[in-house]
Every structure is written in structure tokens, then in C-alpha cells.
Design a protein around this nucleic acid. Structure first.
Lengths: 332, 332
DNA sequence: CAGGTCTATCTAACCGTTTAGACTCCTCAA
DNA sequence: TTGAGGAGTCTAAACGGTTAGATAGACCTG
């Protein structure tokens, strides 16, 4: 592969001149004649500057890392797209780091992103405690990190996320307003986001003067259908008067609908189902009622924060919450 | 940020020794005493090797690029996950390059991946002619490229893709077997994959002794609902006896179902709908009948080919076709 | 016309690794 | 006692860019 020295030799100039031609805007002026010769040589050799060498020399890397818990959860590709769009505009590349919910993979990627000297990292934090020291490790290497969606970890980094508690509260309030009053909640074990959404669910019930009954809360360890089947059937057995299920997110919501269909429950006549995040609600029939999270807006704000940090801003970290909005479907 | 020289100085050894300790398996032996001192210094300084420098020096880059037409099309994140999983195992990073269907973005990314000297590229080719010269450009820089899904471009690169023609033929054969005999096809304009799936549709009709009627084929320029609404209503107006629609992919299938629901058609009683790719069929209610593409298997084979090429294999390129399988749902 | 200024270009050091080859010891056989 | 061989460690030159500072003309100016 041709190098800048090959180009310089062929054009009969120095490497500095070639470099100046490549980086037109660097302030160094090159005569028309030499510019022409350099450009010809570049074409002749099909020369492509080596960004690795450039990064090393300039100590800057036009790459960011995006750490995502599950790229197959329909919610995240939409964030990924928004992130990638903005990065593209700014000439940044994006490293895709899918942790698959495994903390050792998050650890590996965080380390790997440091070693690759990325300019910054966008991450969805899902674990909580164990992550803190990794993040601090990254920050101590002067690589900014911004949390996108997920739960807040500490006050050390900017976070941009949906107002999960308020969103869940609104969702349950909506269900109550529709006349449902035996509402279950199904979420994910060991998920801080579940804890927060659950607290909104609880608050709405208490505000309405209804008690909070732990028996109405089911937590699954993942998104696999058979576990959700157990949870749903158990709920129905224990609470025959159950008339609505508020589910942690859309993906899980589809699993719940599937189970209800199989056991012959009519939606929404027998039981209403409501999702959260609007990642897939628009693609189900009947359309699932859900709380929509403005993903593009959220990702934009996160990226904006990240680039501010990359450019040296060290004001104190912000925790930005974005309000979800109700999208009424036909499952309630 | 600490460098290898800082570590060497603190440990009182040479950089070569530090390097040997970091790369244990390099064959160079280091005494226990010096190893200990180096490791202590690394910890003390929180030293992380700079992979950019390493890449430059070793002329190898543990990164591959994944060029994807649309990360928000549910089909692709599933491929992305499979690719990322395999890359992770081999200690490779993945650059996510979302072209959004824009050829200038594909061009940009291909160039950028060359400049970043990635080890290889996995790409879904969607355009056809214009892409060829880009791909050749990449190959001429000795960066292997493997086509995953999408249509074949030329005989210069390995391609791994579903057998689209056979899959479409099977789909239509299945519909005919169920007794439907006025079957429309809806696809995407300027898509080579549409052309291929369409040819399978045509073949099945001809094999069954039914004619091929161009009026039954609708092509949309994208996946937006209102355009699909026009296509569907026009089809129904022109062919009142229409009893089934075979749709290019699942994503589009959901749009078709949505339109049919809105105009009061019952599925599958009035009209059957069948998708392709099984990217989202499992999440719709009723579950959509579709042709399933074994995504993980396909991605694995593509990655296997890519790593063979990275390791110098230059046997002639293969075009590997994977047979889709029918997944019967409740929309037919 | 000497000296100053400006412009275009070049030389060489540097970014942080890897690694070939040189250099020391040390051991052991002849 | 000598010298060959090997183990452990080091020095210094790459890798392919960027860029500060040097250099050489060209052009003014008093």
C-alpha cells in the first residue's frame, strides 16, 4: 500500500508538501504546480492516507464507542441509527459493542475502547454497582462517557434518559382512567430500569387510593417466552379479576400478548396490555398501547453532550430526563 | 496517559522487556523478577497499551467493518449481533456503517474503512452496478470483502446469502397449495433482491400453469406506509378477486397488514399475507407466515469466509446460498 | 545594494508500539 | 582454560503520518 513517502518521491516533493496538500485547510500554502503534481501522484498510486498513523501522530481518533446491552432488542437499533447518523455528519466512526447483557463483556469492551483511544463513549448502563469502577477507569484516562437510556450510575457522567418513573406513572394513570383497576406489572430481574418503572407504577396506584400489592409484580430473568408464560399464568390464577398488564417494554409486551393469545384471553376485552418504549408497538396487530420514548431526540442530546466533553467542556455532569408520551393502540 | 516508556523507566527495564511482558506469548522469555517489576509498574501507572501504535507497528488492525443498508430494518440487527459475537470471540472490533440506503454513504464508508486499514469488510450489497468499482477499489488495497445477504455483485468476492429465488418460489408454491390463486407481489424499486424474489414468484406461477401478470406486481420506493397503502388499494381495485399478497420482506409485510386492517379486510379470510425473512413475523399478532432465513448460520459462514481471506486464502470466490424455510403463521 | 520580510518548501524529530540484532553473562564440554 | 551456545536483556530502527523550525529565494525598501 502506497505511503506518503511514495507519493512525495513520485511527485518530486517532500512529505510535508504532500501532507499539506492532503490537509488543504491546514494553513500551509502550496503552489498550484506542486499541488497538481501531488494530486497526480496520489491518483497514480491510488494512495489512501493511513488514519492509524494519523491518529497516532495527532493523538486524536475520530471514533466513538457505542456500548449497547442488546442490539436485537428493537429499541436499541433505533438509538444506534441516530447515533451513527450524527457521528457520520461529524466524520466520526462508531464501534459497535454489544454486551448481550453480560457484564464481563461490558468490561472487555470498556477496556478495549480505552486501548483504542476512542474519542468518547456512549453507553447504556444496566447493571449499576459493578459498572461504576469501569466507568471511572475510563474517565481517569480522559475519555468522556455519556449514559444513554438505562439507569443513572453516579454523578460523574452526563446521562440522557427517559423519565421512566413519570412515564410509568402516566401509563398506569391512563389505564386507571380507562377503568382498569387490577393492574399487574411485569419486568426484568436485576434491572435498575425495572426498579424505576416499577416505582412509577406503584406511585400511580397509591395516588389513586389503590394499594400496592407485590403479588401483582412479576419479574423475569430475560425475554424468553416460556418464563413469561409462567409468570402470566400464575398472575391470572392468583388474581382472576386481573384486567390489565403493564409490561416493562414493548419486546416483553409482545411475549405477553403471545401468551394471552395462546391461553385464549381476548385483548383488550379480557385483559389489556400496555408496553413501554414504542420500539415495536407500531408493528403489532392490534397495535399495542405504549409510552413512546423520543429516541432520536434522546440520542441527539447524548451525542451533543459527548462532543461537548470531547471538546474539553468539564462543567458538572447533567442528568437529563426526557418525558415519554402516550401512544394509544388497540390493546387497551 | 502513560506510555510503554514510562512503564520501562519506572520498572527500571527497557521497553523491549515491557513489550515482552505485555505480549507473553511472543516467545521472548523474561525473568520472574523483571516480570514482577513490570507488572507492578503497569498497575501503578494504570497503563493501557495503545492499540493505535500497535496497529501501526504491526501493520495489522483487529477491526472489521460492517456495512448495513438499514440498521432499523429488524432483519439486520440480527445479522449484526451474529457478526459481533463472532468478532468478539476473535478479539476483533466491529465498525458499524449504516448507509441508510444511500450509495454516497456506502462510498464514504468504504473509503473510510480503507483509510482505517480494517482487516476486512462484511457488506450487504444492494445497489449493483455502481458498487462494483468501490468494491474493486477495496480489494485492490488487499482488504477482503464478503457479501452477506443482498444480491450478488460479481465473481470477485465471496457472497453468502439466502436462496431468494427458491425461497420465493417455495412461498408462492405454499400459497397455491393452500388454495390461493390470485397472488400479488409487493417489493421495493431498484432492489436487486426484489428482482430475484420476484423471479421466484414468477417461476412458481408458471410452474402451476398460471400466467404471470405484471399488474399484480407493486413496487414501492421505500417502506413508508402511505405509499404501500396506495399500492395495496390499487391492487384490490384492479383485482377484486385478489386473495393473497406475498410481500418482499417482513417489515413491509407489517405495513401491508396495517393497510388491510385499516380498509377493513380480514386476514387471512379475505386476503392472506405472507412475508419474507422472519425478522419480525414472530412478534406480530396474528403471527405472520414467512420464509425464515437462518441468520446466525449465514453470518457465521460469512465471517468464516472473511477470516479465511484475512489469513491469506485466495482461492476463487464462492457464492453460497442458504435455503430459507417456511414458518407457518396465522395470516395465511 | 545590504538587510529585512514574506512565501514556498524542506528536513528531521516525534507519536507509542514492535522486533531484529547486538550484547552480556553463564554454563558446560572438550 | 577456552570457546560454543543459550538465556535474558537492551538498543535502535522501523511503522506512516504531522509539524516545528530551518532554509532558500523573491521582493521590497531606505
Amino acid at each position: 500500500m502506497a505511503t506518503i513517502r511514495d507519493v512525495a518521491k513520485l511527485a518530486g516533493v517532500s512529505v510535508a508538501t504532500v501532507s499539506a496538500v492532503i490537509n488543504k485547510n491546514s494553513g500551509v500554502r502550496v503552489s498550484a504546480e506542486l499541488t497538481r503534481r501531488v494530486e497526480e501522484a496520489i491518483k497514480e498510486l491510488n494512495y489512501k492516507p493511513n488514519r492509524i498513523a494519523r491518529s497516532l501522530s495527532k493523538k486524536e481518533n475520530y471514533t466513538i464507542g457505542y456500548i449497547v446491552p442488546s442490539i436485537t432488542n428493537f429499541f436499541f437499533p433505533q438509538l444506534a441509527k441516530a447515533i451513527e447518523d450524527i457521528a457520520f455528519e461529524k466524520d466520526y466512526g462508531v464501534y459497535l459493542c454489544n454486551t448481550d447483557g453480560k457484564i464481563e463483556r461490558a468490561r472487555y469492551y470498556l477496556d478495549s475502547l480505552i486501548e483504542n483511544r476512542v474519542a468518547g463513549i456512549i453507553t447504556t448502563l444496566t447493571w449499576e454497582i459493578e459498572e461504576i469502577d469501569f466507568i471511572e477507569n475510563v474517565l481517569s484516562q480522559n475519555i468522556p462517557v455519556v449514559g444513554l437510556a438505562g439507569a443513572r450510575v453516579n454523578g460523574k457522567i452526563d446521562t440522557v434518559r427517559p423519565d421512566d418513573k413519570e412515564g410509568a406513572r402516566m401509563a398506569v394513570e391512563y389505564l386507571l382512567g380507562k377503568g382498569y383497576n387490577r393492574i399487574a406489572f411485569i419486568g426484568v430481574k436485576d434491572s435498575q430500569t425495572t426498579v424505576i418503572r416499577l416505582s412509577g407504577y406503584r406511585q400511580a396506584l397509591l395516588e389513586a387510593g389503590l394499594g400496592y400489592d407485590e403479588g401483582l409484580v412479576g419479574l423475569a430473568s430475560g425475554f424468553t417466552n416460556y418464563e413469561i408464560r409462567d409468570i402470566v399464568t400464575k398472575l391470572i390464577r392468583n388474581y382472576p379479576e386481573l384486567d390489565a398488564i403493564f409490561v416493562f417494554n414493548d419486546l416483553m409486551g409482545t411475549a405477553v400478548i403471545d401468551v394471552l393469545n395462546r391461553i385464549g384471553k381476548k385483548i383488550p376485552e379480557d385483559i389489556a396490555v400496555m408496553g413501554f418504549d414504542d420500539s415495536i408497538a407500531a408493528y403489532t396487530f392490534p397495535r399495542m398501547t405504549t409510552m413512546s420514548i423520543p429516541k432520536v431526540e434522546m440520542a441527539s442530546i447524548a451525542m451533543e453532550r459527548l462532543f461537548k466533553r470531547i471538546n474539553g467542556d468539564d462543567s458538572s455532569p447533567l442528568d437529563i430526563k426526557i418525558s415519554p408520551t402516550l401512544v394509544e393502540g388497540n390493546t387497551t
